[in-house]
């Protein structure tokens, strides 16, 4: 485990850069991680991040299918909003652990 300064705050992160304490998360920190990942956050992004944070807080498994059925965003837009590896990127920006799902 390591500490990283994001948006002027020291946050604890895992070796691959995921926040380990979700309660430290703020919108400013999200912005800082997003710019590292090459994503520019819009209001829509924050809606998706909120959905992800709520899901994880409920202890639910995150899957692309779940995102598609969330009513917040469909799979296609999700891929466009977080290009490359959408679930990995969005969870990183949402300050939750790396998803342990194969689907």
């Amino acid at each position: 485990m390591a500490t990283k300064t994001l948006a002027g705050v020291d946050v604890s992160v895992s070796d691959d850069g995921y926040m380990t304490d979700s309660s430290q998360w703020t919108k400013e920190i999200a912005g800082a991680i997003a710019s590292e990942e090459g994503v520019e956050l819009t209001d829509k992004h924050f809606e998706v991040l909120d959905f992800i944070r709520n899901k994880v807080a409920d202890g639910a498994l995150l899957t692309i299918r779940g995102i598609n059925k969330s009513g917040v965003v469909d799979a296609k837009s999700f891929y466009q909003m977080f290009p490359g590896a959408p679930l990995k990127k969005s969870t990183k920006i949402a300050g939750v652990p790396k998803p342990e799902s194969c689907i």
Binding site: R65, N68, A75, Y79
Partner: peptide
């Protein structure tokens, strides 16, 4: 549904 998800991802 799986095919749709794969196509949605490119």
């Amino acid at each position: 549904e799986f095919l749709e998800l794969i196509v949605a991802g490119g």
